[in-house]
């Protein structure tokens, strides 16, 4: 049997505090480059000015240590825990919630979480966070922190297709959803598409999809082409940056597929706003 490795939750806690900080105050350099490329393809004054403003926003957030967006998000935490890892210290969920509360206080981030969906009292700490754990091989622990704003989350969508549905039917549904959402989710979007699995798996994959290494392509040729096709179709809507009109309604489309039942074909959409905030590390 392979040797086990002990990781204390204080390490996990410190890592999460730092990842929240990095994600909240600066875009990934690749995301910024994408904004510049989109700006250069726009003709209308408003579209160009909007993208310039988003680039400037990144500069100011970093220089003045003011968050990129006032909606500092729900904190979604993805852990990939190697089977040889032994976690020591606090209860794992508590350590994560602690890290979130600490980071949101320390960095003056807005606390947007209410304890109950109907009674709606703000917890004042931005906790609980939403934690997803996958067990993997090895003795490492991967952490990804993903900050998701409410306006963009509200435009999420799930459709259960017939298993015989065509690619075009799926594309039409995606285009219609993006057009209907229009300006609401703050385009240009990073559009996560979860295809297959069960309904819940598709939705989760739509989130995981946008966490793909910035600027990278889908490893499967078929899906890489489908992503391109969807991107073109979505950009033909004319919604444009922040819905003011233009060529760039989505910055990228990311598909994450999964096996599914013979009777089902779930398609889930995560209309992530231009403020794509996540960071990851491996312990």
């Amino acid at each position: 049997m392979a040797d086990s490795r002990i990781i204390n939750t204080t390490l996990i806690r410190d890592a999460i505090v730092q990842l929240i900080h990095e994600a909240s105050f600066q875009l990934h350099p690749e995301t910024r480059t994408t904004f510049i490329q989109m700006r250069d393809t726009e003709e209308s004054g408003i579209a160009r000015q909007t993208l310039d403003t988003l680039i400037l926003n990144d500069d100011i957030a970093k220089a003045e240590q003011v968050p990129l967006c006032q909606d500092c998000g729900s904190v979604v935490v993805f852990l990939e825990i190697g089977q040889q890892v032994i976690i020591e210290g606090e209860q794992l969920n508590d350590a994560i919630h602690d890290a979130v509360a600490h980071a949101y206080e320390k960095y003056y981030l807005r606390k947007s979480i209410v304890a109950d969906p109907l009674q709606r009292v703000n917890t004042g700490t931005n906790t609980p966070s939403f934690i997803h754990i996958d067990m993997v091989q090895g003795d490492k622990l991967g952490i990804t922190v993903y900050l998701k704003g409410g306006g963009s989350e509200n435009m999420s969508s799930l459709h259960m297709f017939r298993p015989t549905a065509s690619e075009d039917e799926i594309i039409d549904y995606i285009v219609q959803t993006v057009r209907d959402a229009g300006p609401n989710p703050c385009p240009p979007l990073f559009l996560g598409v979860g295809i297959g699995g069960t309904a819940d798996v598709a939705m989760l994959n739509a989130k995981k999809a946008v966490l793909r290494k910035p600027g990278s392509f889908h490893p499967v040729d078929y899906y890489r082409k489908l992503e391109e096709k969807i991107l073109h179709a979505v950009n033909d809507t004319g919604v444009g940056p922040l819905g003011f009109g233009g060529r760039n309604t989505a910055a990228a489309v990311y598909i994450k597929e999964a096996a599914t039942h013979i009777a089902t074909l779930p398609v889930a959409l995560n209309l992530n706003c231009h403020s794509l905030r996540y960071r990851g590390t491996i312990l």
């Binding site: 909007t50 926003n57 100011i60 003011v66 968050p67 967006c69 006032q70 704003g149 922040l242």
Partner: peptide
């Protein structure tokens, strides 16, 4: 009116 959604650091100036 709309303003620039998600450009909150810029708008704070």
């Amino acid at each position: 009116f709309a303003t620039f959604g998600g450009a909150a650091a810029f708008l704070h100036t």
